[in-house]
């Protein structure tokens, strides 16, 4: 996965995406906060959902308990 290193740690961009998710955030909001291209944010959000760190909500994405733990919240 592009968001998770072979040793299980998060990549720099994955951490940035997770930290940019506050309450329910849209891909466009995350792209604006991280300065990453929108296509890359959409791809990362999808992977982070598959990894159980985010969940999809109406209108965007929010951190799961595991996601919060991974970024120290």
């Amino acid at each position: 996965m592009a968001c998770i290193n072979p040793d299980g740690t998060l990549t720099t961009s994955a951490k940035a995406v997770l930290k940019a998710v506050t309450e329910v955030s849209s891909p466009a909001e995350v792209a604006q906060k991280t300065n990453l291209p929108l296509f890359r944010v959409r791809s990362s959000l999808r992977e982070l959902v598959e990894a159980g760190l985010l969940e999809e909500q109406e209108g965007g994405y929010r951190l799961t308990a595991i996601g919060k733990e991974r970024i120290g919240l």
Binding site: M1, A2, C3, P37, L38, F39, R40, R42, S43, S44, R46, E47
Partner: peptide, 13 residues
């Protein structure tokens, strides 16, 4: 090289 992407990831661009 930037992970798995779909064509739909580029919508709005």
């Amino acid at each position: 090289t930037h992970g798995v992407v779909r064509l739909s990831d580029f919508r709005d661009s």
